[in-house]
Amino acid sequence: MSLFWRVFLLNAVVLVAATVALLLGPVTVSTPALLTEAVVLAAGLVVLLVANALVLRVGLAPLARLARTMNTIDLLRPGPRLAFAGHGEITALIAAFNDMLDRLEAERAASTGRALSAQEAERRRISQELHDEVGQTLTAVLLELKGLADRAPEPLRGELHEVQETTRNSLDEIRRIARRLRPGVLEELGLTKALRALATEFTGPSLTVRHRIEPDLPPLTHETELVLYRVAQESLTNTARHAHARRAEIHLRRLPVAVELLVRDDGRGIQQTSEGAGIRGMRERTLLVNANLDLRPAPSGGTEVRLTVPVPERNTPA
Rank of each mutant, 00 (worst) to 15 (best):
R180I: 04
A178V: 07
G158M: 13
L156H: 00
R179F: 04
E162R: 15
V163R: 11
L156K: 08
R175Q: 15
A149F: 08
I174F: 10
E162Q: 07
S170L: 11
T166D: 15
P155K: 02
A178W: 04
P155D: 07
E159L: 12
R179D: 07
V185Y: 02
E154V: 15
R182G: 12
P183G: 01
T167R: 08
A149Q: 14
R182Q: 09
E154C: 06
G158N: 12
A152I: 09
G184W: 00
R180C: 03
L186D: 00
V185R: 06
I174L: 02
L186V: 00
L181M: 02
E165A: 13
I177M: 01
P153H: 07
L156A: 14
R175S: 14
R175I: 08
P153M: 11
I174E: 13
L186I: 05
R175N: 13
R182T: 11
P153F: 11
Q164P: 04
R179L: 09
E165N: 03
A149I: 05
D172K: 05
L171N: 02
P153D: 15
T166W: 02
E173A: 12
N169C: 12
D172C: 02
R180E: 10
D172G: 11
E173W: 08
V185K: 01
G158V: 11
A178T: 08
N169T: 08
I177F: 00
R151E: 05
R182V: 00
E165I: 02
P155R: 03
N169R: 12
P153G: 13
Q164T: 05
L171Q: 05
I177T: 04
D172M: 06
E165W: 06
H161K: 10
A149G: 15
D150W: 07
T167F: 07
L181T: 03
E154T: 06
P183M: 00
A149E: 03
T166L: 12
R180A: 13
L156I: 10
R157I: 08
L156F: 06
L186E: 02
E165M: 14
I174D: 01
L156V: 03
L156Q: 12
A152E: 02
L171S: 09
T166Y: 13
T167V: 10
T166R: 13
V163E: 00
P155Y: 02
T167P: 05
L171K: 07
G158W: 06
R176I: 15
R179A: 11
A178K: 08
H161E: 09
R176V: 05
S170R: 01
E165V: 11
A152N: 07
T166P: 05
P155N: 09
L160A: 05
R168D: 02
T167C: 08
R175G: 04
L181D: 03
G158F: 12
H161D: 01
I174K: 03
E165K: 11
E165S: 14
A152M: 06
L171I: 03
